[in-house]
Design a protein around this nucleic acid. Structure first.
Length: 213
DNA sequence: TGCCAGGCCCTCTTTAGGGCCTT
């Protein structure tokens, strides 16, 4: 499953944060980062690290993620981990499920250590809302089932969620490749698709489906 | 103790409101 059928897929880093809450503007911090690098449709790198946010994590977050305060007690600081992660993403384009959430935390954590990044973000959730319009909802776990992608790990851990988002991303590239034989610049393609009105994508899919009959 | 955000997108819409999705 790690090799997709896209011949000219460009390099992206798919990432996922676990955090103390929903908003860095309200003081929430990252507690884990997981990421997968895809080159030519193949996974060529992984990054995973717990980080100590300097504050206690709520019991809700401990239950939600399985990441406990004792696990974070001896973890390296957010700054130390984020320096390493800034080196890992290395200017590549970035993908996340509900990317606006992860982008806010990436911006906040890198801002605290005066680091940045030059790649652009694309959102797998916005693409999935267009390509998988019949899915019961567009949570990551639901989409994995809807796309018949095998899963046997625990959601809500950063590396596993980034691995599943990677498989979803490659699956959606596969849909575009099979339906429209489009394989050049797939990041840009799906980034553009995420901004295309859902109704327009629905008509495109219906037309493609009827042409195949 | 209990609460907090923000972007997208639909609709009973656009001078708005509310659900979804992320932790």
């Amino acid at each position: 499953m790690e090799r997709a059928i896209i011949p000219n897929a460009d390099t992206v880093v798919v990432l996922d944060f676990e955090t103390t809450g929903l908003s860095p503007d309200m003081g929430d911090r990252a507690i884990e980062i997981g990421a997968v690098r895809i080159e030519q449709g193949e996974i060529t790198g992984r990054f995973q690290a717990l980080m100590n946010p300097g504050v206690r994590v709520s019991s809700f977050i401990e239950d939600y993620t399985g990441i406990t305060n004792s696990m974070l007690k001896d973890a390296p600081s957010c700054g130390e981990v984020m320096h390493q992660f800034a080196d890992f993403i290395n200017g590549y384009n970035l993908v996340a499920h509900n990317a606006s959430f992860d982008k806010r935390f990436l911006d906040a954590e890198l801002g605290m250590i005066s680091r940045g990044y030059t790649g652009q973000f694309a959102c797998s959730m916005l693409v999935a809302r267009r390509l998988y319009q019949n899915s019961p909802d567009h949570k990551l776990g639901t989409l994995i089932n809807h796309a018949n992608i095998p899963s046997e790990g625990t959601f809500h851990r950063a590396l596993y969620d980034s691995e599943m988002t990677t498989k979803l991303w490659l699956s959606m590239l596969g849909v575009m490749h099979e339906q429209y034989a489009i394989s050049n610049a797939p990041f840009k393609l799906l980034q553009t698709l995420a901004k295309t009105p859902k109704s327009a994508v629905r008509r495109l899919l219906e037309r493609s489906s009827s042409n195949k009959k």
